[in-house]
Amino acid sequence: MTIAETQKEIINDFALLEGDREMSVMYLMDLGEKLPAFPEEQRIDGNLVKGCQSKVWLVATLRKDRIYFSADSNTAITKGLVSLLIRIFNGHLPDEILDGELFFMNQIGMDRFIGTQRSNGFAAMIQRMKQYAKALKTTSGIQA
């Protein structure tokens, strides 16, 4: 599935909640709980995303030229947010992630139910993922 297709899927999922704020937040928290367990040895300050009010640990690995992220957070909503990004970006080539445009946030009305502070943190997570993509692109030797 492309980065755009996954986003459309997310938009459809959230549409079922009909903009109910409480249900949207609960749904996000549930999504976060479904993330695979984060490796304990990776829970280090160096893996923290800067700019998040909550703690978010984020790491990326490269397998057969494709990037796979794992993440954790000390707050359930933030963990849900990062799980959306992982769902969108996982298994893609570094260039796809670098070029990938994110449009689902507005369409699911995310600003309304997570607020400005978390939106800033969310932007920091995206930036960190793109940084990983850039770095791993170099190490994988793929030419743009």
Binding site: E22, M26, Q53, T75
Partner: peptide, 21 residues
């Protein structure tokens, strides 16, 4: 088992303003 930020966000969804942090 629930971070204060999450509690605050969920309360806000029900129109209740508290401070967290």
């Amino acid at each position: 088992g629930i971070h204060p930020f999450d509690v605050g966000q969920l309360l806000d969804a029900r129109g209740i303003a508290v401070r967290t942090g």
